[in-house]
Design a protein around this nucleic acid. Sequence first.
DNA 1: CGTGCATTTGAATGAGTTCAAGAGCAGTGG
DNA 2: CCACTGCTCTTGAACTCATTCAAATGCACG
Lengths: 253, 253
Amino acid sequence: MSSEHDCKNRVPTRNINVSCTDCSLNPICLPVAVDETQLDELDKIIKRSKPLKKGEHLFRASDPFASIYAVRSGTIKTYSVTEDGEEQVTGFYLPGEVLGVDGISTNIHSNSAKALETAAVCEIPFEKLEFLSAKIPTLQRHFFQLMSKEIQADQQLIMLLSKKSAEERIASLLLSISTRHTKRGLSASGFRLPMSRNDIGNFLGLAVETVSRVFTRLQKQGVIYVDGKEVEVLDMQGLCHMANGMESDAKTA
Amino acid sequence: MSSEHDCKNRVPTRNINVSCTDCSLNPICLPVAVDETQLDELDKIIKRSKPLKKGEHLFRASDPFASIYAVRSGTIKTYSVTEDGEEQVTGFYLPGEVLGVDGISTNIHSNSAKALETAAVCEIPFEKLEFLSAKIPTLQRHFFQLMSKEIQADQQLIMLLSKKSAEERIASLLLSISTRHTKRGLSASGFRLPMSRNDIGNFLGLAVETVSRVFTRLQKQGVIYVDGKEVEVLDMQGLCHMANGMESDAKTA
DNA sequence: CGTGCATTTGAATGAGTTCAAGAGCAGTGG
DNA sequence: CCACTGCTCTTGAACTCATTCAAATGCACG
């Protein structure tokens, strides 16, 4: 309903220093848990630094853990590296989403976080958040929920990796991104994939080539239209069926 | 060193009502976060109910979420069910480990939890724990860490599912169980797998047949000795290498 | 307007699945 | 005590989906 036009390559966020009160992500970010009178307190502990450029790291695995981060604009990918040096993408974080909780248990990040495009984040020092959480019960609750949500997301990925075919995996990812777009009031059917085919494949446990082939196949089937990173979902219901492993023949026939 | 003999089918836990203070799992369970003076408070909110029999549910997906649970004896498996009705095992919980946090974000459990053998658990009402967490900073911290640990475990599973071969997966699982045994002061090399081949396969994203074949293969290679659910690790280092995808030929050759 | 990546496409290969059948084992009841 | 039943587990053989290898094409950026 509001500033949905990103026609120019203007960064969606107007100003580095918008307070939570004025941030358009307000309703899907941390502030949801805090009533107006206390929002100021939360706002005060949040650091808003200069945006990251594409490819820059927000933090790296083995960095000491000090803060969690809320994405304000752009996309961040998190990944870890296996013993034998291979990269595993563990998540993509879109505006309004919170990352970095992986470091809490050991005080050291177990993942690295890298900007896939120019991205701005709000840094929330964890110790201060802990302190505030103990004072504001709804915030503590919200933060527990946030971590629980991360667990659920991971478990869905586990399910996907362990049970689903290449087609189902891609379909699921597209739906996930579409849904998350909707939460921000953006189009459910048309969007730009901020990550490379390589990242997609890595995340979904597929070879790049497979990702590419599936995209082509989905396009031939008329479920989506793809042009590079730009995606248009033509048959949302078909995509849903596909993601859930339903045999969906009765389509164009 | 102590009561490692489960010759008879006696339940390892002596008494249903051991307080946290007296519980042998004390050093690896929730109480680690709480000093003696406050342990009483934690102890008071914990409910210790009668043991579950093999196959009984602790909770089911879609049950309202009210408590988290610490395993006191036996083994619990958690699993969820896909849209198309398939089961996905999401974790195995051994004594001293905490489960049930999946329900926090929605107030409804997203997993079911089922006893793989006779099992006793401590029930910890979540609202009371929240309240106590706000009061005892180390407890809040510990609980955050506990959830963060769950996230890390899930992410390791993700890595395993997306990158590792059947052999590496089985090796990893054996090592994981071995390590967790060690934490309780039990043998690292000899143990009993509390779950069926089917559960193992489901958890690791493999067909039962593959699990069976890999066990046989590992045995032939002299890395482990298997007799039904009983496992003896013969070459711990070899198993480690195997789990991490190292080519380890120079063995019996 | 090259140069270096990212992406796509094709063909061959392979690890794990599926299907099928037999072996082992625990519980039950005569 | 033994036979029967219903499991779980193991083993073999054929098949399949995704991977790997190889090469062409497209795209972005200096």
